[in-house]
């Protein structure tokens, strides 16, 4: 089911805020690795939850160009809205 960009953004921000260290502020431009301290496997595990949340298949390969929170939201939005 297609979801709006805002819905996806809110959901991802909520998921990420549970993963980042206390006191770290999230913004669209926050770098997942360097600023938020998310190692590659934390992001991959987050992807499992995202796939289930939106009932999509989002191959790991798609994360190659994802560096910031906005990159992640953009990519999920693209996949969600291209799924049948």
């Amino acid at each position: 089911m297609p979801s709006s960009y805002e819905e996806i953004s809110t959901k991802i921000t909520s998921e990420l805020s549970g993963l980042v260290p206390p006191g770290v502020r999230l913004s669209d431009d926050s770098e997942l690795a360097t600023e938020l301290g998310l190692d590659s496997f934390k992001v991959l595990d987050l992807l499992l939850d995202i796939e289930d949340e939106f009932d999509i298949t989002m191959p790991v390969n798609l994360l190659a160009d994802v560096h910031t929170v906005k990159d992640l939201v953009d990519k999920i939005h693209e996949v969600v809205n291209s799924s049948p």
Partner: peptide
């Protein structure tokens, strides 16, 4: 180059 999907 295949699509890689992880499962729990």
């Amino acid at each position: 180059g295949a699509d890689i999907v992880r499962f729990r």
